[in-house]
Design a protein around this nucleic acid. Structure first.
Length: 208
DNA sequence: ACATTAATTGTGT
DNA sequence: ACACAATTAATGT
């Protein structure tokens, strides 16, 4: 655990903080498609991503979903920081997209870190900033881009995260994550296939 | 190997 | 958005 911590966070955190994290944090290995936290659940700790990818999404009253962003190695989830102080419940859902490794730090264990370690404070701000930027980006894409571009972005992003040029997913699932309907996605995908950008199989999309 | 069924995808209105 | 057709995968006999 120390090795991986140093590899990813060694340049950011001072030695003493690294020691502290190894003392109170626990290394978790998460299988693929595992729901780590759901909307409304109490937040128990702050995650530091070691490897893999986690999908962060939002859901409305009707149970319709919307993909917000991915967490990847070196990331942390700052929406949890927002609820770090109070007893707020999670506003988001986190499901692992790939088998993932991360270190969980219980929130009650990190109470005075912000005063004690300047690097921790910096990390919080930087992380918060990055996450905010990503959200503004997806907000922009929803507000200003057409669904076609959004779908293309979605595919390329998913391809990048998975590291394959083959995605195993149904049109229905895509529609849910982008908060659209299956028929529309099917039609757009077909258009993308005709322009030679992708190839459609059953339960599968190949990027060409 | 064949038939049946369920799930996914395609298309017209 | 809805309805239905077409295709594919899964399962039982």
């Amino acid at each position: 655990m120390i090795l991986e911590l140093k590899r990813l966070f060694g340049n950011i955190f001072e030695e003493a903080l690294i020691q502290e994290i190894t003392r109170v944090g626990t290394l978790k290995e998460i299988p693929e498609n595992f729901m780590m936290i759901d909307i409304g659940e109490r937040i128990k700790g702050v995650p530091l991503m070691i490897s893999g990818a986690i999908k962060i999404s939002r859901e409305n009253e009707k149970g319709e979903e919307l993909l917000l962003y991915y967490l990847e190695e070196g990331d942390s989830c700052t929406l949890t920081f927002a609820s770090e102080m109070g007893t707020t419940k999670s506003k988001i859902r986190a499901v692992s997209e790939l088998p993932s490794k991360l270190i969980m730090i219980p929130i009650n264990q990190m109470e005075n870190w912000e005063g004690k370690y300047p690097s921790w404070r910096k990390f919080l701000f930087r992380s918060y900033q990055i996450r905010m930027d990503e959200m503004v980006e997806t907000l922009d894409s929803i507000a200003f881009d057409g669904l076609e571009k959004r779908l293309l972005d979605y595919i390329t992003e998913k391809k990048r995260v998975n590291g394959k040029n083959e995605l195993q997913i149904t049109h229905q699932n895509i529609a849910q994550e982008l908060h659209s309907s299956r028929v529309v996605i099917s039609r757009l995908l077909k258009k993308l296939e005709q322009t030679g950008k992708i190839e459609l199989k059953r339960n599968k999309i190949v990027i060409t």
